[in-house]
Amino acid sequence: MYLPRYIKQLVGILGVSLLLALPLTSQAGDLLPSIPKGKGDKCVEPTADMRINHMEYILHQRDDTMRRGIRTSKHSLKECIECHNAPAKDGKVARVGNKEHFCSSCHIYSAVKVDCFECHTDKPENAQYRHAVKGNH
């Protein structure tokens, strides 16, 4: 859905403020998403930008790759999974639908359905293989 950028930012700021404010309430502990940390120290875009616009980046890359054969890895869903899918508490690979999965942690919390994983796999090909962002983004 197309929304002006400032509206998205406003929503993002409101959302982040809400996240920050929630711990102040007493029973919020279990409700909050605990987002697994990705490999490496930074993402392909600034974190605030990713929080607001990650779906736009993935969508854009999706059409470029699928329909035109452009296979850069910067905004590819496959690469998101490679860095961000941290092992669950039991040491096994985290699966989508489980709060320990990077995508699910937030998407369950915000009740936004993702249907990426009806077709795409939710884990790296090799569960041991997680890498940080390569090169200079």
Binding site: G69, R71, K78, I81, E118, C119, H120, T121, K123, E125
Partner: peptide, 25 residues
């Protein structure tokens, strides 16, 4: 039917049509 554990380079899922991709990847 619903599918799990697809190959990362070969997404496939319930309710859609698929065929040979000439191994486009």
């Amino acid at each position: 039917e619903p599918l799990m554990n697809q190959k990362p380079h070969a997404p496939r899922g319930m309710g859609t049509v698929e065929s040979c991709t000439l191994c486009v990847h």
